[in-house]
Simulated assay, not measured.
Amino acid sequence: MNLAHWITGGTRIELNGHHLFVRQDGEGIPVTLLHGFPTSSHDWAMTVPHLVQAGCRTTTLDLLGFGQSDKPRHHRYSVHEQADLVEAAWERLHIGETALVAHDYGVSVAQELLARAPGRVTRTALLNGGLYADLHRPIPLQRLLHSRVGPLLARLTDERRFTANLRSVLAKPVPDELLHDMWTSVVRDNGHHLAPRLLRYIDDRRTHFHRWTRSLEQYEGPLLFVWGPDDPVSGAHVLDRLRRRLPHAAFTVPAGIGHYPQVEAPEETARALAAFLAV
């Protein structure tokens, strides 16, 4: 499903003074999916149909500053505010208990939600992300965007540079059309200029390291990790710690996959998620 088709299936709703893009599909078991940096909920476009077929009602949203949601220019973005907005969406859409699926930036939002109300989250599935701040290995471009030169570099970013850097965290080729859709989503309303502000999540992870580590390691619900081991940012080195710290969790580790399992191995990822969620 291309980006244009994905957008037509959703709507923008006002939450806490901001307009966020939200999409709901299917009927049955509530499942909320959170995307990563720097893309959007469209990352889940190949996953959602499988979950719907398995009997899930999926809720996907573009977090503030991403995709089709508002992108305030001088805003101080934070993981805590993103969690506030997810909770506001749950209230608006009358979602009580829900399963939670998250990738990359979204895993930090998920950890904050687990720290607040773990009983509300029936089960949790996480894809490659910085679950442990000390193991996070941002690519060189992210380091630069997070530095003093970030605002200037963000303005100079174009589709060619964006695509090259995204491919650097993928272990398997993906269609050019998909990468173009990712760029289209990022660049809407000059969203690529916001990268230095959005990357403050790296600081949030360091500041809230212990809170978020506890929220994950003390979570008592069913837990699945779908993890690309060849991810240079959050790959096998994170997987090793997860296996040690969370021996009760289930793991799906597609061989030869990098940072985006749901994009690089969509069928295997969707099957693993459907089997875990539709119980």
Results as ranks from 00 to 15, higher is better:
residue 3 L to H: 09
residue 3 L to P: 06
residue 3 L to R: 15
residue 6 W to G: 06
residue 6 W to Q: 10
residue 8 T to I: 08
residue 12 R to Y: 00
residue 15 L to Q: 12
residue 18 H to G: 03
residue 22 V to K: 08
residue 23 R to L: 05
residue 26 G to N: 13
residue 27 E to V: 13
residue 28 G to C: 00
residue 29 I to A: 07
residue 33 L to R: 12
residue 34 L to K: 05
residue 35 H to V: 08
residue 37 F to R: 06
residue 40 S to D: 09
residue 44 W to C: 04
residue 46 M to Q: 14
residue 46 M to R: 12
residue 48 V to C: 05
residue 50 H to Q: 12
residue 55 G to W: 02
residue 56 C to E: 00
residue 58 T to C: 10
residue 59 T to A: 00
residue 59 T to M: 06
residue 60 T to F: 00
residue 64 L to M: 01
residue 67 G to R: 14
residue 69 S to M: 06
residue 74 H to Q: 15
residue 74 H to V: 10
residue 74 H to K: 15
residue 75 H to I: 13
residue 76 R to F: 06
residue 78 S to W: 04
residue 80 H to S: 14
residue 83 A to S: 04
residue 83 A to M: 00
residue 86 V to Y: 05
residue 86 V to W: 01
residue 90 W to M: 10
residue 95 I to H: 06
residue 96 G to C: 05
residue 97 E to I: 05
residue 99 A to T: 14
residue 107 V to H: 06
residue 107 V to E: 03
residue 110 A to T: 11
residue 110 A to Y: 10
residue 111 Q to Y: 11
residue 114 L to E: 02
residue 117 A to M: 09
residue 119 G to K: 12
residue 120 R to S: 08
residue 120 R to Y: 07
residue 122 T to A: 11
residue 122 T to G: 12
residue 123 R to W: 01
residue 123 R to Y: 03
residue 124 T to M: 13
residue 126 L to N: 05
residue 128 N to L: 00
residue 131 L to P: 01
residue 133 A to N: 01
residue 140 P to D: 02
residue 140 P to Q: 04
residue 140 P to E: 03
residue 142 Q to N: 05
residue 146 H to E: 00
residue 150 G to Y: 00
residue 155 R to K: 11
residue 155 R to Y: 01
residue 158 D to G: 14
residue 161 R to L: 14
residue 169 V to I: 15
residue 169 V to L: 03
residue 177 E to L: 10
residue 177 E to N: 12
residue 177 E to G: 15
residue 181 D to T: 11
residue 186 V to C: 06
residue 188 R to C: 03
residue 189 D to T: 08
residue 193 H to Y: 07
residue 193 H to K: 08
residue 197 R to L: 07
residue 197 R to C: 04
residue 199 L to I: 10
residue 199 L to V: 06
residue 204 D to Y: 12
residue 204 D to A: 11
residue 205 R to L: 08
residue 206 R to K: 12
residue 209 F to N: 12
residue 210 H to S: 15
residue 212 W to Y: 06
residue 217 E to Y: 10
residue 218 Q to S: 13
residue 221 G to Y: 07
residue 222 P to R: 15
residue 223 L to D: 02
residue 223 L to K: 08
residue 225 F to I: 09
residue 228 G to N: 00
residue 230 D to Y: 08
residue 230 D to P: 10
residue 231 D to S: 12
residue 233 V to I: 14
residue 234 S to F: 15
residue 235 G to Q: 07
residue 238 V to L: 10
residue 241 R to D: 01
residue 243 R to D: 00
residue 243 R to C: 03
residue 246 L to C: 01
residue 246 L to A: 00
residue 253 V to F: 05
residue 253 V to P: 05
residue 253 V to W: 05
residue 255 A to F: 07
residue 255 A to M: 09
residue 256 G to P: 08
residue 257 I to L: 01
residue 265 A to C: 14
residue 269 T to Y: 04
residue 269 T to R: 01
residue 271 R to V: 09
residue 271 R to A: 10
residue 273 L to G: 07
residue 274 A to I: 10
